[in-house]
Design a protein around this nucleic acid. Structure first.
Lengths: 349, 349
DNA sequence: GGTACGCGTGTTTGCGCTAACAGACAACGG
DNA sequence: CCGTTGTCTGTTAGCGCAAACACGCGTACC
């Protein structure tokens, strides 16, 4: 046990200042620049020297100061994530994927909240966009909303949106509802349904609009009429309200494609209240394949898509723009697939 | 329009360097220190001077460089949030509250993921704990897990846990399941149930253990036997499996208190499969009051608690330790309450 | 035998900001 | 009238790191 000098044992001293690169350099008998090289994994360091530095690093429990590094390099190694309230299930999965992939590439995640409806408070967004605190931005709010918030702001960093509507300057990464919704509608059509309604998501969500578009498209391809699709807000409550209205006003409807599982669950509830049996009297499909869908009574037929993967790809997309040429992995639309369970069946003759 | 010199118009120049404090100082005709004072809201600046600086700030669209500030002050104004995968519904709400409250106090949120099960990869946690990148830490993983991960690591920053088990050195902020679970069990007892089972959450979760404790306590207070409570993992799947076993092995059970709504939903599913009618044959209560609970068939009686508020208070707790004396708002346990709906009724005679 | 080059390492400089100190000037009291 | 106090502002230094450059040495090559 080494002596701690005249001051006696270390106990009682106030929290030690964290070791700096200079401390490591002194201990290893090299310059701090060499320490920097070792820490950053540069090749041109003698193996013996590297070893000595590494030992010193371990001894002092040295960890690089992110602020100093950011100041010196101009890069923060942080990705900002702009999200409104995380309440919708999907946003969470995307965030999960973002976090995971960012960590894999040595990036931190900085969460920038926007108070959803008002969005008056753009300050956080503005700061983030100015690019001093983050190297890149992943935007998880409806891009139309974002446009309003950022009109006129300078954008100095790569941006990717996960709910883009194709009208952005920013590239979009998202799951492609096409295959899943198409399969869902065709599944219903194959079962013999001729009047397939749609409970849509909010109009300001590009994802919601895209799902509605595919549903309408498939109906049209089969020469079927396309009923008006009332728009909800992703919630079970809206599904229940819209569903009750649909049951009352359009009793001829035999199948409903819902914009997400929550709304489908709400519709399921409305059916129970109205004495409509599922799937005997009405077939229902959801979207997202949340856990509750698989355990609902009846088990909900739905569209599965990998939102975690969307998050991962969003990160890859910004990373790609940050360091062109680097291989970051696949970017692009994530497919979706229909999962048939119990809530869909042939209509009664 | 000002001349841009022999270089011609500004178009084509590469992205302008962001304005620094020195730029603002030059434009306003003051020293950069004065700019610093204005930007940081110090009192001792002449109103006229302050105004001039503010104009220059606006003109140059100046925004402070967080890295430089952090380097100079030693404080990052960032709160680290350690969360395993965000998959459990509750974690998201807490995160939402954390983000909101942190923003209100001018703090950023840095998300530090831990790959849930293994936790071998403690590097992120270690770095965060070393305190160079964050000023404080909110830990949203089971604290027993945290202890394992941080054994021996120096902790230089305030830490608050949201799933503490009382054995930590770190203060805990959480919702208090006591009132809600007690009310749920007493509600069932009042209805006439005498054999009330419990589907517990994972054993490594302090929150889960506390819910089980209250359930057992109330039964004991009423002189009732306390059946063994099988432990699930919060998922509907585990609720379904455990529920099926319970129905098969303990047919005398007339009521089940579930550790959360997902497991209750799984149990509901198991009942449907086994031909057990709810609430006629079996009463069920959940915990969390997720949206799907209110729309389940039957509507799930459950315990409501405000996890967003837990997140807010967690932030207040660390802020309080960061600046003692400052009034940050209420800290402490968040209450819970029982919500009776359709999944509970008197047992059949 | 000299030029050329590559490699490992050290030195200098500056990123943008704030703490600490220093100075100028006005108001005020003894 | 001078010291004292207080208010506003400027100067200097340094936070910890990495970029750019300089340097010494060995090796290859003509």
């Amino acid at each position: 046990m080494e002596s701690t000098g005249p001051g006696g044992p270390r106990v009682g001293r106030r929290l030690h200042r964290a070791a700096s690169m200079a401390d490591v350099a002194r201990l290893a008998g090299v310059s701090s620049q060499t320490v920097s090289r070792v820490v950053n994994g540069r090749a041109n360091v003698d193996p013996a020297t590297r070893e000595r530095v590494l030992v010193a690093v371990g001894e002092l429990d040295y960890r690089a100061n992110a602020a100093a590094r950011a100041l010196a390099t101009g890069a923060t190694r942080t990705i900002g994530v702009i999200a409104s309230t995380l309440s919708t299930h999907g946003a969470v999965l995307v965030l999960d994927g973002i976090t995971e992939e960012a960590a894999r590439h040595g990036y931190r995640i900085s969460l920038v909240p926007v108070h959803a409806p008002s969005l008056r408070d753009v300050s956080g967004v503005a700061t983030a966009l100015a690019g001093r605190d983050v190297d890149a931005l992943v935007v998880c709010v409806a891009s139309s909303v974002l446009r309003e918030a950022t009109a006129g702001l300078p954008v100095d960093v790569p941006v990717v949106v996960t709910d883009g509507d194709g009208q952005d300057v920013f590239p979009a990464v998202d799951s492609d509802p096409g295959p899943g919704v198409r399969a869902a509608v065709e599944h219903l059509l194959d079962l013999g349904h001729r009047r397939v309604a749609h409970l849509a998501g909010p109009g300001d969500s590009a994802t919601a609009r895209r799902r509605a578009l595919v549903w309408a498209q498939v109906l049209r391809e089969h020469g079927l009429p396309v009923p008006a699709a009332p728009a909800g807000d992703w919630s079970a409550a809206s599904g229940a309200v819209l569903g009750a209205a649909l049951l009352a006003e359009h009793p001829a409807t035999t199948a409903v494609v819902c914009a997400n599982d929550q709304m489908a669950l709400g519709l399921l509830r409305a059916c129970a209240d109205a004495g409509v049996r599922v799937p005997r009297d009405l077939s229902i499909t959801g979207f997202d394949d949340v856990e509750a869908a698989a355990y609902a009574v009846p088990r909900l037929s739905t569209v599965r898509h990998d939102l975690v993967e969307v998050g991962r790809r969003a990160v890859r997309a910004v990373l790609q723009r940050l360091s062109p040429g680097a291989d970051v992995g696949p970017v692009g639309l994530v497919p979706s697939e229909f999962v048939a369970r119990e809530s869909t069946a042939a209509p009664r003759a």
